[in-house]
Design a binder for these strands. Structure first.
Lengths: 322, 322
DNA sequence: CCTGTGTCATAACTTCAGCTTATGCCCTCA
DNA sequence: TGAGGGCATAAGCTGAAGTTATGACACAGG
C-alpha cells in the first residue's frame, strides 16, 4: 500500500502515505500553529502575525516552516515586502479555520463549566443544547458583552427546572414537547428529529419516504427510555401503532450515532447531532411521511422573573432564526 | 497569566478576566489530549486509552490530570475497575469531538494536497467544494477504501476543466449554473446562495422576505467579478434590473464573511460557507423572494471516460443526498 | 483467605519541540 | 544611499510530555 512517497526524493524520511496508525496529533499542526497561520493570512506578514500571537518573529518563521515541512506543502509565499498565502495555503487556512473555530467553542464551553460560583449569569441547559448550541451562543455573548462571566450546568429537563426554581440558575434551556410546569419560557427554535442509516442500509436506497407506520414497526437504535428524543418519538408514533421494541438501547447520543454509522440499523437523532455525519455521508437521512418529528427548544425562567441583564442579552442572542 | 485556579478565589472580578489576550492554544488542551479523552470515553479505562493512542499508562494519567487542572473541572471518575466520564466530562468530550473531527478533515485535506504525483486518484475541485465538502468525502473514502492515495488540486472551473482535459486529473468537482463544455458530468448536489447580514442590520428585523428587485438595487458585499457566486447572482437578478454596484468587492469568501459579520452590509454567500456563523448568530439569513439563488454542484470528467476504480468510488460517496 | 490481575498514581530521569536573543541579508522607498 | 520593514539562520535555554519502575487499591477465584 504505502509506496515511497511522491516527494522529490530527498529527506522525506518520515514515511510516505502513513495514514494508518500515527495518532492524529502527529499529523496535524497544533492549535498554536493553526492560529498563527490564520494570523498570517489576515495580516499579510509573519512578523506582524508573530507580534499578534505574542511570540517572536523567528519563532513564527520557524513554526510556519515546520508546518510546511510537516504537511509537505508550501503555504506561504515570502517576500521582502511581506507574506502572502499560496493557493494551497489558502485552502489549508480554511481548513485550519474550522479547527480553530471548534477550539473556540470548546474554550467557551469549558470556561463556563469551570466558573461555577459567583458568576453574573448562571445557565442551566439540557445536554443536547449544551453540546451543540450553547458554545456558539457563548462566543456571541463574549463578542457583544465581553467579560460576562457565565457558568453552565447541564442536565435533563427536570434538573434544569429544579435549579431555576431553587434560584441556582438564572436562565435555562430545554428541549421537549411542552413547557415545563412552574416555569415561564419562550420558544427560541425548533429541532427536528431525523431518521438516519448508514449509506448501505436498504432504506437509503428507497425512492419515497418511509411511512410512519413502517417506522413505528421497525426496531430502531435509540437512546434509553426517558430521554427527550425517545419521548418525542413515542408521542409522534403513538397514532401509528406505537414504537416497536428497540433494536439497541444506548446511553449516549454518540453511542447511537456510532452504531448507526457502523450499519447496525436505523437510528433517530436530533438533526443537531448528525449534521457532520450527513454532510460527510457517513449517514443518510431517511425522509419519513406522516409523523411530525419536531420539538421545540425553549428558554425558561422562574415565573415572573423575566430575564434581565446578562440573561436578557443571552436570550436575545438565541432567539433570532434559531 | 494563570491565576490560581478558580474555586473560592476572592475578588469577584476574576470572572471572564482571563479571556482576552492569552492565545487560544494555551486555554485549550492540545489535540493529543483531546484524542486521548475521546479514547477514554470510548474504552472506559485510562490504561486502555493509553495503549490505543500509543503512549504509556502513566503518560495518559498525567495528561488527563493536566487537562483537568487546565480546565478546572474533573472530567473522569477513576476507580480501581476503570474510569468513567463525569457529567462535565461528557460535555467536554462532545466539544472535544468537534475539534478532533475538524482536525481529521484538516488531515484528510492536507494529505491529499501533499500527494501531488503518482496518486491513484487525482481530483481537481473548485475552491468552495475543496474547502467545505471534499475533506468529508475523503474521510468517507478512507473509511471505505483505506489506503487510496488521493491528490487534490483546487482552482476555478476553467482550471479544473483544463486539468481533466489534459489528463492531469481523473475526477473534477465544480459548482455553477451549467456543465462546463467538453466534459461529461453529473449533478451531485445543490448549493444555495444566501443573503446574510449582521444581526443588527435593518434587514434582520424585517417581517417578510426581501423582494428580488430590492436585493438587486442594494449595494452588496460580494466576491470579485468572475467568481462562481457572483455569476449565479448576476444571472438570478438580471430579470430584476441587474445587480447594483457592489458595496465592497473582496477577494475571498472569508473576507466577505468578516465584512458582513462586522456589519458593513448585506453579503451573498454559499450556505456552505456560513453554516457556523448562522448557528452562532453572528450572521442572520435574509429570505429573498422571487430569485432562485441555487446552483448545482457537479462531478465532471472527460467525455467518454466514465469514472472507474477509485474515482467511481469517490463519486458514489458524494452522490447520495448531496 | 490469600493470590493474581486488572486499575490508577507517584517518582526520577530523559528528550525534544519550541521559545528567545542576536545577527545578517534582501528589498523598497524617500 | 541610508533607513526600515521583512524574513532567515544560529546558538542556547526551558519545560512539557514521554519513558521505566514501583506502589496502592479493588475485585474474582481457587
Amino acid at each position: 500500500m504505502t509506496q515511497g512517497d511522491g516527494g522529490t526524493g530527498g529527506s522525506g524520511a518520515d514515511g510516505g502515505a502513513d495514514a494508518p496508525r500515527t495518532p492524529l496529533a502527529h499529523r496535524v499542526p497544533d492549535l498554536g500553529a493553526l492560529e498563527l497561520l490564520l494570523a498570517v493570512a489576515r495580516l499579510g506578514s509573519l512578523g506582524r502575525a508573530a507580534r499578534e500571537t505574542g511570540i517572536s518573529q523567528p519563532a513564527a518563521s520557524g513554526r510556519i516552516r515546520a508546518m510546511e515541512r510537516q504537511l509537505g506543502v508550501t503555504l506561504v509565499e515570502r517576500s521582502p515586502r511581506g507574506s502572502r498565502l499560496t493557493d494551497a495555503g489558502t485552502l489549508v487556512t480554511e481548513w485550519a479555520r474550522r479547527v480553530v473555530e471548534a477550539a473556540e467553542a470548546f474554550d467557551a464551553g469549558a470556561h463556563a463549566l469551570r466558573d461555577r460560583r459567583d458568576s453574573r449569569l448562571r445557565v442551566a441547559a439540557s445536554m443536547t443544547i449544551a453540546e451543540y448550541l450553547l458554545p456558539g451562543w457563548l462566543i456571541a455573548l463574549r463578542a457583544s458583552r465581553p467579560g460576562t462571566a457565565v457558568s453552565l450546568f447541564a442536565g435533563n429537563s427536570a434538573v434544569v427546572a429544579r435549579r431555576l426554581q431553587d434560584g441556582e440558575a438564572d436562565l435555562g434551556f430545554v428541549e421537549g414537547t411542552g413547557a415545563p410546569a412552574g416555569l415561564d419560557g419562550a420558544v427560541i427554535g425548533r429541532d427536528r428529529l431525523v431518521v438516519v442509516t448508514a449509506p448501505a442500509h436498504p432504506w437509503a436506497r428507497r425512492r419515497g419516504p418511509v411511512p410512519a407506520a413502517e417506522l413505528a414497526a421497525t426496531p430502531l437504535i435509540l437512546r434509553e427510555r426517558g430521554s427527550g428524543t425517545r419521548q418525542v418519538l413515542d408521542a409522534a408514533l403513538r397514532a401509528h401503532g406505537g414504537l416497536a421494541d428497540p433494536l439497541l438501547e444506548l446511553a449516549s447520543t454518540t453511542a447511537v450515532k456510532s452504531a448507526a454509522v457502523s450499519g447496525a440499523g436505523p437510528a433517530v437523532l436530533s438533526e443537531l447531532a448528525v449534521g457532520d455525519e450527513l454532510s460527510a455521508h457517513r449517514l443518510v437521512e431517511i425522509p419519513v411521511d406522516g409523523a411530525p418529528l419536531r420539538r421545540e427548544l425553549r428558554a425558561v425562567w422562574p415565573i415572573g422573573e423575566r430575564p434581565a441583564g446578562p440573561a436578557r442579552e443571552l436570550l436575545s442572542l438565541t432567539r433570532r432564526g434559531g
